[in-house]
Simulated assay, not measured.
Amino acid sequence: MTIYQAKVAYDSASNGDKVTETYLLRAFNLTDAETMIAGAVSPKVRANSEGIEIKSITNKRFDDFLQHPADADTDVRYYVVKTESETESGATKRYTTLISAPDLDTAYRIATEKIHYKRIVSIVEHEAVDYLHKD
Rank of each mutant, 00 (worst) to 15 (best):
I54G: 07
G39D: 12
Y79N: 12
A111Q: 02
V80H: 06
K7F: 01
T22Y: 07
T74Y: 09
R26T: 05
E34F: 04
S14Y: 01
T20G: 05
E86W: 00
V45Y: 03
E125K: 08
D73W: 11
H116W: 06
D103C: 01
A111I: 01
A33S: 03
Q5S: 13
N59A: 15
E125C: 00
N59F: 15
A70S: 14
I3Y: 03
S42E: 14
L30S: 10
K60S: 09
V124N: 11
Y108N: 14
I52E: 11
A47R: 12
G16V: 04
K134S: 11
E113S: 13
V81P: 04
K82D: 15
Y10A: 08
E21A: 10
R109M: 10
S85N: 09
A111V: 03
D73A: 14
D73S: 15
N29M: 06
Y4V: 12
I110Q: 09
G51Q: 07
A27H: 00
T106V: 15
R119F: 03
T58H: 09
Y108H: 11
E113V: 04
L98Q: 05
L104I: 14
K44D: 13
I3G: 09
T58R: 13
Y108K: 14
A107H: 00
R61K: 13
K55F: 07
T35L: 14
I99N: 07
D64N: 06
S42A: 15
E21I: 05
G39Y: 03
D135S: 14
P43V: 08
F28I: 14
I123M: 10
F62T: 05
K93N: 08
A47H: 10
M36W: 00
V76E: 13
K118P: 00
H116Y: 10
F28Y: 12
A107L: 00
G39I: 05
E50W: 02
A101L: 08
L24W: 04
S56R: 13
A6C: 09
A70Q: 03
M36V: 00
T20V: 11
L66M: 07
I3H: 02
I52M: 10
V81S: 11
K60N: 02
K93V: 05
A13I: 13
I123G: 10
S42I: 08
I37F: 04
L25E: 00
R119D: 11
K93P: 01
D130Q: 09
A101C: 06
V81F: 04
A27Y: 03
V76G: 06
R119E: 10
S100V: 07
D17M: 15
E50D: 09
V121G: 07
K118E: 09
V41A: 07
K44V: 02
R94C: 02
R61I: 13
E125H: 00
D71W: 00
Y117W: 09
N29Q: 04
S12N: 11
A111M: 02
A6T: 08
